[in-house]
């Protein structure tokens, strides 16, 4: 690995200053499970001279819930803290679908949803789940903070609209009413330790046997994690039924624009979008009906 400098700021302000002073050559690091590997192999997309360890900043370690503000997950909160959190388990248990399958146990000791989002891999296992939950990111920069829906963050493979001088602080998940259920599933050839060939995050709210809201988001089938608005919208107002879910799955499949690579052919991935959307929606429906 080439030489790097290491900084460990204690405040958001100090971190932002380090980032903005570096002229684009600094990268924030949470668990480092992607960044360290990218630096080691000399990935040209991550040409950092300075690594800014953001794990000592209080806001980035926040994990809190209130019914009015919803759930806030700091950008550095490790996966194991997410699936070990009582509030997550009571109110946002579907987030565990992602938290328990990012890497293995050891990776979950370091990796965070925030890092997963900033890494912006098309296959990022937490991103479609966050999108399906309607999550909003808080980003700090030299001129203050801004809030951006998660579905708008990723702009290309390993590219985000977070500036070189900006820092992802936290992700907020609005409270869900009764009748809400969500699910993230991915397809991998092994049962763990794998990159999604395709992944689907889905959420639904059901009242009186009808969908009142729904979201479907895909992983690994486009340059970025994808919110398929039309798939969710197709369900709203419909009675819960196999046909409605199949229709949404068809729309998800149609929206997928995968490539063929070592993980799967484009056709296979499109096919999986159908299968996984159906399965994710069915689980989300079960959870919604169990919750109401």
């Amino acid at each position: 690995m080439k030489w790097i400098d290491f900084e460990k700021p204690k405040t958001v302000e100090d971190a932002v200053k380090l980032l903005s002073d570096s002229g684009g050559n600094a990268r924030p690091m949470a668990g480092g499970t992607d960044l360290i590997v990218q630096l080691r192999v000399g990935d040209p997309r991550v040409n950092a001279d300075v690594v800014v360890d953001i794990k000592s900043i209080p806001e980035l370690n926040e994990l809190s819930y209130s019914s009015s503000k919803g759930l806030t997950i700091g950008a550095a909160v490790e996966c194991y803290k997410i699936y070990g959190d009582a509030n997550v388990n009571s109110h946002f248990s579907a987030l565990n679908d992602s938290a328990t399958l990012i890497g293995g146990t050891q990776i979950q000791g370091r990796a965070s949803f925030g890092g997963n989002l900033c890494n912006a891999a098309p296959s990022g296992d937490s991103i479609p789940n966050m999108i399906a939950h309607g999550a909003v990111a808080t980003i700090a920069g030299p001129s203050g903070t801004r809030e951006v829906p998660v579905e708008d963050i990723c702009t290309g493979p390993r590219q985000t609209l977070i500036g070189d001088d900006e820092l992802l602080v936290s992700i907020n998940f609005p409270s869900n009413g009764s009748g809400f259920g969500a699910n993230y599933i991915r397809f991998i050839p092994r049962n763990e330790m794998d990159i999604a060939v395709a992944g689907v995050g889905a959420s639904v709210t059901i009242e009186d046997g009808k969908f009142t809201s729904a979201k479907v988001s895909l992983a690994s089938v486009a340059p970025t994690p994808l919110l398929v608005k039309e798939a969710g919208e197709s369900l709203v107002g419909e009675t819960v039924s196999e046909e409605a879910i199949q229709n949404a799955a068809n729309l998800a499949k149609a929206a997928a624009k995968p490539i063929s690579d070592m993980r799967g052919t484009a056709d296979y991935r499109k096919h999986l979008c159908d299968v996984l959307t159906r399965r994710a929606l069915n689980t989300a429906v079960e959870r919604a009906q169990g919750a109401s």
Binding site: P189, R190, E192
Partner: peptide
């Protein structure tokens, strides 16, 4: 039988030369 293979691109470079993408069985498999 199930998953292991050298995945070569057209230029003859192995594209899965890591233990993430060369899928040997884990305990869970």
């Amino acid at each position: 039988a199930l998953n292991e293979e050298y995945f070569m691109n057209d230029e003859g470079t192995m594209t899965n030369s890591s233990l993430l993408d060369y899928r040997m069985p884990t305990s869970l498999d």
